[in-house]
Design a protein around this nucleic acid. Structure first.
Length: 260
DNA sequence: ATGCCGTTTCGTAAACGA
């Protein structure tokens, strides 16, 4: 089963790109972030025509996440537990069953957290603590699960072309990195790193200042696997070429292959 | 560097992103 995560930066602006990519790569499941669209305004028809079921948790202008799947999406749940007052659409979960078992899959858009010293950074850290609690709850089942999305965290210096440029950024703060490690230390596996420990592979290049041309990138889109999912991991790739397409998102898809 | 670029909105400048 091929499972991908992709921050599309606006589903309405990216629909042609997305459909061309789906048709060519044929992923089984895709976790999307930054739909920037209400549920009713998501262009479902062209996606469904390609054979995908679509579950969305949308929001006007900002945020918004979705899961696409060739197989049916079961037990869809929206919103990250732990704060009933949080109205930002950043989390959706669903189960995909195969002949050999089931995988619980989450599409998440972790808060950016900039600028430092504001409510936004506190919100990021609080959200990460809630994600840790959700991961702990899912681990209780001892089943395969995948937490896929835009984490807005650069885990290690080798995940940035110029780590010193990110020293004062929420994505590379010690607190952000420590909470990401806490998530891993529960027993979750960073699927891409497990397949390529060298560093120097990125999933985001800013639109500004020729970042793509200079390969000034960062790796912030991650798929974290439960032990039962990690046992079935056979490969992970970053679809870097997509950043060079016409009218690209600033993020590219990260894809894993699970033997399920 | 309040910059750069791109998306969105009861728009035509401002908010947000990373």
């Amino acid at each position: 089963m091929k499972i991908a995560t992709w921050n599309v930066n606006g589903i309405k602006s990216r629909i042609d790109n997305l459909c061309a990519w789906l048709e060519d790569r044929q992923p089984d499941v895709v976790c999307l972030q930054e739909l920037k669209s209400l549920d009713d305004n998501v262009p479902r028809a062209p996606i469904e025509r390609l054979g995908y079921n679509v579950a969305t948790h949308g929001q006007k202008s900002f945020n918004g996440v979705a899961i696409l799947s060739k197989r049916p999406l079961e037990d869809i749940a929206t919103g990250l537990p732990g704060d009933a007052s949080d109205e930002q659409a950043r989390y959706i979960e669903a189960t995909v069953s195969t002949d050999t078992g089931a995988v619980r899959i989450a599409s998440l858009y972790l808060p950016n957290g900039n600028p430092l010293g504001t409510q936004k950074f506190d919100y990021k850290l609080d959200w990460m603590k809630r994600l840790i609690a959700r991961a702990q709850a899912l681990l209780e089942f001892e089943e395969p699960f995948v937490l896929a999305g835009d984490y807005n965290v650069i885990p290690m210096p080798q995940d940035a072309r110029f780590p010193e440029n990110w020293r004062d950024d929420a994505l590379f703060q010690p607190q952000s990195r420590a909470l990401f490690r806490e998530l891993e230390n529960l027993g979750l596996t960073d699927a891409y790193r497990a397949c390529d420990a060298d560093g120097g592979a990125y999933s985001f290049w800013d639109y500004q200042a020729g970042a793509w041309q200079k390969n000034n990138g960062i790796r912030i889109d991650h798929l974290l696997l439960s032990p039962q999912a990690a046992d079935r991991l056979v490969g992970a790739t970053i679809d870097k070429d997509v950043r060079g397409w016409e009218k690209p998102s600033d993020h590219v898809p990260v894809i894993i292959e699970l033997e399920v």
